[in-house]
Design a protein around this nucleic acid. Sequence first.
DNA 1: ACAATGACATAAG
DNA 2: GCTTATGCCATTG
Length: 126
Amino acid sequence: MAGFFEQVYRLVRRVPPGRVTSYGALARMLGHPRAARTVGWALHMLPPSDPSGARDGSEDEVPWWRVINSRGRISTSCIEHSADLQRALLEAEGVEFDERGYVSWERFGWEGLPGPEVEALIRDDP
DNA sequence: ACAATGACATAAG
DNA sequence: GCTTATGCCATTG
């Protein structure tokens, strides 16, 4: 069984470009419905992503910017992962923000993985 | 074991 | 919609 952080990272890597999900939704998928804060903390420890696309094809990159809060807004106050950076990364993928800074769950929300897929992620062996 | 920490969620005013 | 207050929980010192 992978550590909780590792489980979070694996799940976030499955979020497709141009879609978003929430901290709470990720926690629920992993079977810890109330661990949203812990999810946020896990993402906080990631290295800031390179907006200039210098991701050199490494699959281990975690697209932390596709995770926002349950109201559809960017939630970070961290300077390494600034709200400006996150918004820019999302917009580069086609995600749109309304004039008040909200993302529409209807249009861009990620449905998540089917149960068996999640269980496979939680289990070990990459 | 205990207290502190953290990019949340939710309810209330 | 905004701000507070409270509950949450994995990780760390």
